[in-house]
Design a protein around this nucleic acid. Structure first.
Lengths: 243, 243
DNA sequence: TGTACATCAGTGAACGCGCGTTCACTGATGTAC
DNA sequence: TGTACATCAGTGAACGCGCGTTCACTGATGTAC
């Protein structure tokens, strides 16, 4: 296919650059609209208005409303993923507990800064919209993949206490699920650690969601950063991460 | 006030009974609509259609769209609260771990059965809608109040290990928040136990939300009841609940 | 028990609004010779 | 370098739709005497 080669070799034409820029503008304006009115009220007409263009013009760039939602989903996952990666990368490789806390803190900071995008990614599903797995799975799993790799690296380095509470047994079906995950992600940690890792994952997002979605109420917790920090300490203990 | 006394003494007139029934029908139809199209798309016109009545007629019963949302919110909180209460009450008073598991299992069962109501109560906030605290706070706190009382009763009975991990300290601001909660709810448990109780609370709803909102993906976990049961066992350990 | 009046539920028309999406079109930008 | 044609961005009108809310009204139900 000559056309594929040529698009790689040739620099983008002005028209192509304009097109890329316009799509980026549409995503940006979509996010603003999301922040103000929520995903269910996201409208192509409103984005067109903000873009200074007639409503039918956005159909040159986006197939329909659902595709705009998909673009926003991917954009959100990648922004979160980038910030999480940067935060984790700034901690020494051997400091697994520090990496875990950096990841969690980055998730919380992004969620508080971008509550509408966070709600789109981790809140109630948008009625009538189904994300296309082939486009969203990879960006959508960046945080959990990174988290699992921190735990697994800690285990391989002997920094993960796999015998936190030997009394709890892993039932058969769960063990099968965990075995499949271990194979697919090429992990070394035992069932007990993986299962606890899953709980830490859900607990982290549970804590962030409660805070972002206002479940704590307006007055009950004033020291929210301290609360979150304490929760991280306890979760560290849950998964047996020393530090 | 004679009118107040008379409304208490006299049996309701047919008209009053019809009115009560119609409001109940509106709430029921509102919930169906919620389940099908989500909170943001909840419309008085659709409810009126289902009720077999002209759209303006519902204004005899409900002030506006926001009030219908409030009714649905209260209805959901109370249904969940009733089921949680029934589940906990069916466990012996001395079996604190069993009570905790009964509460958590009831929350999960209700959430899976009523995902749209669960999303309204615990998912992303509805844009443009602010719940009236004076009407929703009491029903909205039934589950956490019940959970805290299980933990506190366990502590008073000596069944709560308050020294689960002595290494973790409670920072000053968080301690102040916890002290206020202890006073207001008349609790006996120490800071460490209360703080861990908060984490257990957020973790419980985090796990349920991930499952109900589809964050686990379609295939990763097939043994979801086992996963949840295991998570409860670990959370029991987190708060130091023997059993 | 019968009548006069008040209360209430429900009607139907109307207001102004925003939405997603299609379509034929104009005019500017890019490409092939 | 210049011209002819193809591609593309954006326009403007239109389609059919549903929404929240108001208002004057009709007719049935309830109440006071």
């Amino acid at each position: 296919m000559t056309s594929v080669e040529s698009t790689r070799v040739k620099p983008p034409t002005p028209r192509e650059r304009a097109r890329t820029q316009t799509i980026a503008d549409i995503v940006r304006l979509g996010r603003e609209h999301l922040a103000l009115h929520g995903a269910a009220a996201l409208s192509l007409r409103a984005v067109a208005r903000d873009l200074g263009v007639v409503s039918s013009a956005v159909y040159r760039y986006v197939e329909n409303r659902d595709e705009l939602l998909t673009l926003l989903l991917i954009d959100g996952y990648n922004e979160l993923g980038d910030e999480v990666d940067a935060a984790v990368d700034s901690v020494p490789e051997s400091d697994f507990a520090g990496q875990f806390r950096a990841l969690a803190t980055a998730v919380r900071a992004w969620a508080i800064r971008e509550p509408a995008s966070y709600a789109l990614l981790f809140g109630s599903p948008v009625p009538g919209y189904q994300a296309p797995g082939e486009r969203t799975t990879v960006p959508g799993t960046r945080v959990i993949v990174r988290l699992v790799h921190i735990f697994d690296a800690a285990f391989r380095a002997g920094a993960l206490d796999a015998e936190v509470s030997p009394g709890v047994v892993i039932p058969e079906g769960l063990a099968a699920d965990l075995a499949a995950i271990r194979t697919e992600m090429n992990l070394a940690a035992p069932d007990a650690s993986l299962a606890r890792g899953v709980l830490v994952w859900t607990s982290l997002f549970g804590a962030v969601s409660f805070e972002v979605f206002g479940q704590y109420g307006p007055d009950t917790f004033k020291a929210r950063e301290e609360l979150f920090g304490h929760q991280l300490s306890v979760l560290q203990g849950v998964v047996g991460l020393q530090g």
